[in-house]
């Protein structure tokens, strides 16, 4: 009861922090997609490069987020830009991997059929490979989005704002109401993003099969 009252009194800051959180994560995801999808496509054309890129991406995914965030500071300083940069570093890896594996796993016979119809490379890509691998790419985007929301919480530390601010303050001040006021919306945001994108992915999969 006590908490609900506290939460209600702070609804404006919760709302503005949530919007900021969504904004930072969204910018990062859009940039990640813009970088990772073309890169993923590119490495399907240069298979030798693919091995190196996919392996590096796999190793990169093991690097702790806080380490990435920390190492961005000496290079870019603090604020929104370095925070988004760190989020993008995290976000591109799953999308590169999924774009690559999505396209590589498209049935060869379908591509042959496209060629037989006289499609050019570009048409094969836009009319065959991308539509068929879209559910897999979407799964990568979903992973990247959930990751971005999570790393954005930490990015509050380097001045990105968002819900992480409330949680860090709550920890420092040992204020349980503030802690819950920051944590619960953050958790809901991540779970909601995952469920929504999961639904989109499922729908795409069904579409791809038909």
């Amino acid at each position: 009861m006590d908490f609900l009252l506290y939460f209600f009194e702070r609804r404006e800051i919760v709302l503005s922090s949530t919007l900021r959180h969504v904004e930072v994560s969204l910018i990062a995801v859009v940039l990640s997609v813009a970088i990772a999808v073309p890169l993923g496509i590119l490495i399907t054309r240069y298979r030798k490069m693919a091995h190196v890129v996919v392996n590096s991406a796999n190793i990169g995914q093991t690097v702790p987020s806080l380490a990435i965030l920390g190492m961005v500071i000496p290079i870019l300083g603090i604020g929104l830009k370095p925070a988004v940069f760190a989020l993008v570093l995290r976000g591109v890896l799953p999308i590169i991997n999924n774009t690559y594996s999505g396209i590589v796993n498209v049935d060869r016979s379908v591509i042959e059929a496209g060629r037989g119809m006289g499609m050019k490379n570009r048409q094969i890509l836009t009319l065959v490979e991308l539509p068929l691998s879209f559910p897999v790419i979407m799964a990568g985007i979903r992973t990247a989005t959930v990751l971005s929301i999570s790393v954005a919480t930490l990015a509050a530390l380097i001045g990105a704002g968002g819900l992480g601010d409330l949680i860090f303050q709550g920890i420092v001040m040992a204020d349980r109401n503030l802690l819950l006021t920051g944590s619960i919306p953050t958790a809901i945001l991540a779970i909601a993003a995952d469920l929504i994108l999961g639904g989109v992915e499922k729908r795409l999969r069904r579409g791809a099969v038909q």
Partner: peptide, 22 residues
């Protein structure tokens, strides 16, 4: 397990601390 996995770590800590401390 999948839903738990989705919760950002800082938020999970934030929800645990009020009940079990730091």
């Amino acid at each position: 397990a999948g839903i738990l996995y989705t919760i950002p770590s800082l938020a999970l800590f934030g929800m645990l601390i009020p009940f079990i401390g730091i």
